[in-house]
């Protein structure tokens, strides 16, 4: 007799989604859409493109749900798809049409008047999309290096290196992070 695994709530949703249950998939993926959007926004620096990327990623997640082994892996798995979509969108052209300066002027926060903060914000915008994504996942979403690595499709060592390099470029005191 085959052993029967006891499934948790999300695992039941995953099992249902794998059989084509759309409602189960929606309940499973919905909590991760906002973080996926924020990752896409960090990588693409454009709200409309970020939403497109998350929509594409969600479609691909639905198509690929059969490959997800455990519901515990869904966040990293979904973020991987989002990051890949962002890369594909960035690679679609050698440059993309993003109305940068005009769009940003009206959205500045009062904190931008502080020189140091402004420098940090500018420095953040100068990071590569991959570096921004790594920093964002590590310090905003509070993912650990292994989770960052999983989401970005790199090794944990590469993730730590990328974060370390980005922090140096941001002139962030590395000692505080123990890096």
């Amino acid at each position: 007799m085959q052993p029967v695994a006891v499934l948790g709530g999300d695992d039941k949703l995953l099992a249902a989604a794998r059989t084509g249950d759309q409602a189960g998939f929606e309940r499973l993926i919905e909590p991760h859409i906002a973080v996926g959007y924020r990752l896409a926004a960090a990588m693409l620096n454009d709200a409309a493109q970020a939403e497109d990327a998350v929509q594409e990623a969600t479609l691909r997640a639905w198509r690929s749900i059969g490959q997800l082994r455990s519901s515990a892996q869904i966040r990293g798995w979904f973020l991987t798809i989002v990051a890949n979509r962002c890369r594909s969108m960035r690679r679609a052209r050698w440059w993309s049409a993003i109305p940068l300066p005009e769009a940003r002027l009206g959205l500045r926060s009062p904190a931008d008047t502080v020189d140091q903060r402004e420098d940090l914000t500018k420095a953040l915008s100068r990071l590569s999309p991959e570096e921004r994504a790594a920093v964002f996942l590590r310090f905003y979403e509070d993912l650990n290096s292994r989770e960052v690595a999983e989401a970005l499709g790199i090794t944990a060592t590469a993730a730590r290196t990328r974060i370390h390099r980005a922090l140096r470029r941001l002139r962030v005191d590395l000692r505080e992070e123990g890096l």
């Binding site: 903060r117 953040l124 310090f139 905003y140 941001l170 962030v172 992070e177």
Partner: peptide
């Protein structure tokens, strides 16, 4: 900058 500054900027 500090990590706190970074988190704020993010």
């Amino acid at each position: 900058n500090t990590v706190t500054d970074l988190r704020q900027a993010l």
